[in-house]
Nucleic acid binder design. Structure first.
Length: 508
RNA sequence: CGGGGAGUAGCUCAGCUUGGUAGAGCGCCGGCUUUGGGAGCCGGAUGUCGCAGGUUCGAAUCCUGUCUCCCCGACCA
């Protein structure tokens, strides 16, 4: 059967990804290099992610604040590793006004004028400027912990942008906290990783693996970086969220000092953590199929769409009225504490066109209601996680009563499907030969979907790790916690003894 | 930053080699037909051909410069 998206995932995965975004009307490339326009359907998903995560941050004691977009260049220089890590991807503001001039043809031109004494950098992340604020706010151990989050845009001048996954400007949240003790800061880092894991699993229906980053992959300036890593359908990893323990690196650089319980001056211990619009890219790749995206019910801007079936002009108005009445009933139902989000698509369009639009957008449930259904007091229900022709005729009253459970069924089936896929593609690897075989496509010119998460014993050096990245484009995604990964063995690469397996994968 | 490709209608692109002043499909608008399905027929609107120079009687087409985007590589929370 013909699918809505061409090429399919198997035919050309990267191109499929672009086409899905277009077909689902999520976003488009803008005239500004590397920057996207997020369209209402995509932004609606982001708003729900934002609202639900925000509540989780507040439930764990955090408060929102907002800091400047522009960071004095000297701030970025304060922490050496941090400065080096971000130097090559910063947009720099050097002037503060324009002068109107006429060129030789008499055409008006605007020319930068008013050079700044010190350039500003458009924030690639806000550790330094928030650190400066924290330094002002903290004097005593009684001022700690400081638990702050900001919802903002940041800019990183990436070499190769890709919608949602890596854009020059992106939306995110960045949490920044300061603590009295090292232990407390580490606990905070772990707490947030848990929040991310839970949110991505229960709301986005994506199972992840969690763990610590290797030294090579750590955030510039961090002592420890934890991440959640999702596996998407081409079996690559996407780093979907990170939580950093910054030690005293930034408090020393920014002067976040306090008088401790013993009356002595100390440096605070800080953390930072973030997730971004990359979550939407992860969502597309985790759940999309050859007919478009599939939005998990909990974050679907429209959870149920009602499609009026109007075969005859004289019954058209009454069908649409019946649809509106049904929508009203459905909106009285709740799903996870919110009224269910229902749309009636009464546009004067061919029915098939409308139906496919909503399939491509991934609305969890589609309801068709026509004269025959009104007669029989039934509705035709289609689940997006099943095939496009799937249709179940259900008595209307039963449907209204069971709506919340039906949405949860879709939510659960998406998570289960993703979990099975992930587990099938986590492979224990114990030799270089197996490792190379797993990560080498048969057709290098048009690589087929291959690879997975290789669970390997590792005792190599940073240089060994870089060599593997160079040879196969594979990196350590994370060093997982948990007893199931702890066992004695030998490193697949160096043959040295190892006491824990780590995850290797290709990544976005 | 290196290698390649492309900028022409809302979108995808043809036309350029051999200069003569703009095309198709899809989409859009209108009409009729159709209707549990991504429909059909007829009609219509839409372009300083990326920008700036140059050559020419005449440039989308040739020349020079310039900007932007896309792909591959390097780089990358």
């Amino acid at each position: 059967m013909k699918s809505a998206i061409s090429p399919t995932r198997d035919e050309n995965y990267p191109e499929w990804y672009q086409q899905v975004i277009k077909a689902a009307d999520l976003a488009e490339n803008s005239e500004v290099r590397g920057c996207m326009v997020i369209k209402p359907w995509g932004y609606g998903i982001w708003e729900l992610i934002q609202r639900q995560l925000d509540q989780m941050f507040k439930d764990t004691g955090h408060k929102n604040a907002y800091f400047p977009l522009l960071i004095p260049l000297s701030y970025l220089e304060k922490e050496a590793e941090h400065a080096e890590g971000f130097a090559t991807e910063c947009a720099v503001v050097t002037h503060h006004r324009l002068k109107a001039e006429k060129d030789e043809n008499g055409k008006a031109r605007l020319v930068p004028d008013g050079k700044l004494a010190e350039p500003f950098v458009i924030r690639p992340t806000s550790e330094t400027i928030i650190g400066a604020a924290f330094a002002r706010w903290v004097q005593s151990y009684r001022d700690l912990p400081l638990l702050i989050n900001q919802w903002a845009n940041v800019m990183r001048w990436e070499m190769r942008p890709r919608l949602f996954l890596r854009t020059a400007e992106f939306l995110w949240q960045e949490g920044h906290t300061a603590h009295e003790t090292r232990e407390e800061a580490i606990t905070e880092m772990e707490l947030i990783l848990g929040v991310y894991e839970k949110f991505v699993r229960d709301h986005l229906a994506i199972p992840v693996v969690t763990g610590a980053k290797s030294e090579n992959e750590r955030f510039p300036g961090a002592d420890e970086t934890l991440s959640i890593e999702a596996m998407v359908q081409d079996r690559k990893a996407i780093q979907a969220g990170t939580s950093h323990f910054l030690g005293q690196n930034f408090s020393k650089a920014s002067g976040i000092n306090f008088i401790g319980r013993d009356g002595k001056s100390e440096h605070a211990w800080t953390t930072s953590w973030g997730v971004s619009t990359r979550l939407i890219g992860t969502l597309i790749m985790a759940h999309g199929d050859d007919d478009g995206i599939i939005v998990p019910p909990r974050i679907a801007p429209t959870q149920v769409v009602i499609l009026p079936i109007t075969p005859k002009e004289d019954s058209k108005d009454s069908v649409i009225d019946a649809c509106q009445a049904l929508a009203k009933m459905l909106r009285l139902q709740q799903f996870h504490g919110d009224p269910i989000r229902v749309d009636v698509d009464a546009r004067d369009l061919n029915g098939g066109v409308k139906n496919w639009e909503w399939i491509k957008k991934g609305v969890p449930l589609r309801i068709e209601l026509g004269p025959r259904d009104i007669e029989s007091r039934k509705v035709a229900v289609s689940r997006r996680d099943l095939g496009p022709k799937d249709k179940d005729f259900v008595p209307k009253e039963d449907f209204i009563r069971s709506l919340s459970e039906r949405l949860q069924e879709v939510q659960d089936s998406l998570l289960e499907r993703a979990r099975v896929f992930r587990d099938e593609n986590i492979i224990k690897i114990d030799s270089r030969e197996e490792f190379e075989a797993l990560f080498t496509p048969r057709n290098p010119n048009q690589p087929e979907i291959h690879g997975g998460f290789a669970l390997c014993h590792w005792a190599g050096s940073n240089e060994d790790e870089e060599q593997i990245q160079k040879d196969l484009k594979v990196t350590i995604r994370c060093i997982p916690f948990g007893n199931e990964f702890a066992e004695e063995g030998t490193c697949f690469y160096t043959g040295k003894p190892s006491s824990r397996r780590v995850f290797f994968a290709k990544s976005y």
